[in-house]
């Protein structure tokens, strides 16, 4: 019986191989997309460089993201915060991106930043607890100080959260209600 079964399956060999190749292609496609075309590093309205601010000028994170250790959200700095420094920085005043910033300020318009690190509405996440637990910002946000354009390095999806909570043995870290709301 065994011989005859293999024989009988011979016509099915090519379609099976084709399917295998297609599945392989699928994986490659998904990987390529994630690497090069995803929402991980969108183009922002102003080409703000964390590298320049955080690394070259050594501004600490919480200088701008002032709410990170006291509230659930880190807080994206207000336009006035940007202007606060930049109006006394004539050296870069004429750079095109700074001019854009000035335009927003003069029109009293907020800058529509695109959210890179985003969790869905049903997730309860608080920066405060994570900052107070002495996590470095980079643990989740990646080496921000090396990025000209912000890229999301973590998936910011549930397995990623659970993994860390499990590793660090967070108290009730795997209780659903700790993170879901």
């Amino acid at each position: 019986m065994s011989i005859s079964v293999l024989d009988a399956l011979r016509p099915a060999r090519k379609p099976a191989l084709l399917g295998l190749v297609a599945v392989f292609g699928l994986l490659i496609g998904a990987w390529v997309h994630g690497k090069y075309f995803s929402d991980r590093s969108p183009v922002q309205p102003i080409e703000f460089s964390h590298k320049v601010h955080a690394a070259d000028n050594e501004i600490p994170c919480q200088h701008c993201h002032i709410y990170a250790d006291t509230t659930p959200v880190a807080g994206v700095p207000s336009v006035s915060k940007c202007i606060g420094c930049h109006k006394s920085l004539p050296s870069v005043r004429d750079q095109p991106e700074i001019l854009k910033l000035m335009a927003f300020w003069e029109n009293r318009e907020p800058i529509p930043w695109i959210k890179v690190h985003d969790v869905p509405d049903f997730v309860h996440f608080t920066h405060k607890r994570h900052v107070k637990a002495d996590l470095e910002c980079q643990e989740c946000h990646g080496p921000v100080e090396t990025m000209d354009r912000i890229t999301r390095v973590a998936t910011m999806r549930m397995p990623w959260c659970v993994e860390c909570h499990t590793e660090k043995n967070v108290e009730h870290g795997r209780d659903c209600w700790t993170c879901h709301k």
Binding site: G19, V21, A22, V23, G25, L26, L27, V32, F37
Partner: peptide, 14 residues
């Protein structure tokens, strides 16, 4: 087949 698969992968990720 590989090409169709890859396009499918990109579309799915998107």
């Amino acid at each position: 087949a590989g090409g169709i698969g890859a396009v499918g992968g990109v579309l799915y990720s998107e």
